[in-house]
């Protein structure tokens, strides 16, 4: 018999692996960097507003990368902006997540051939967790992308799959 076996009658005590608790905490408050680039940013703002209510998933925009957990690349990434995005990404503390929103940041979108100034996909500069297709994606699609990211975080672990 253990030292504390059946010692507590309080129903507020929860037993769980540290990993599960950490992952739950991370996925429940993904603070995003307030960062908009083009028309996708309008949809992102609509998602943040009361009708679609990003905040119900704990997503609130932060004004500095040092307080952010995620960045949503919402729009056309020009080569000039790509160097800035890389710097912002490097300023976000680990663990950090990236949602690539819309065709432009996925692969260059309508600028794929003649856009002399457009980076053909943000994944050429920084690693992407979730791609959201659309031009621009509706708020539902962005919410779906966020749910995918939450799933990904929920199953994060330090251990290798097979030991």
């Amino acid at each position: 018999m253990g030292l504390l076996d059946k010692e507590f009658s309080d129903g507020n005590i929860v037993i769980a692996p540290v990993e599960d608790v950490l992952n739950w905490a991370r996925l429940s408050s993904i603070w995003q960097l307030g960062f908009g680039l083009a028309c996708c940013a309008i949809e992102m703002m609509a998602t943040s507003a009361s009708h679609y209510d990003f905040d119900r998933f704990g997503v609130i925009p932060r004004n500095t990368p040092r307080q952010a957990d995620a960045i949503i690349i919402s729009g056309t990434v020009t080569l000039k902006m790509a160097t800035r995005i890389k710097r912002l990404y490097e300023q976000i503390p680990d663990p950090k997540y990236i949602i690539s929103m819309g065709s432009c940041s996925n692969c260059g979108g309508p600028y794929w051939e003649h856009g002399y100034h457009v980076l053909k996909g943000i994944d050429r500069v920084i690693p992407v967790d979730v791609y959201v297709p659309g031009c621009p994606p509706r708020p539902e699609a962005l919410l779906e992308g966020l749910l995918k990211l939450r799933d990904k975080i929920r199953h994060e672990t330090l251990r290798k799959k097979s030991v």
Binding site: L79, A82, C107, Y116, L119, K120, R124
Partner: peptide, 20 residues
């Protein structure tokens, strides 16, 4: 100068690949 008719886009800008 990008809008000249004989402009040719570079392969790389600051280590980033430019063409699709």
């Amino acid at each position: 100068y990008p809008l000249r008719k004989d402009y040719k886009n570079p392969e790389f800008y600051q280590g980033m690949k430019v063409p699709y």
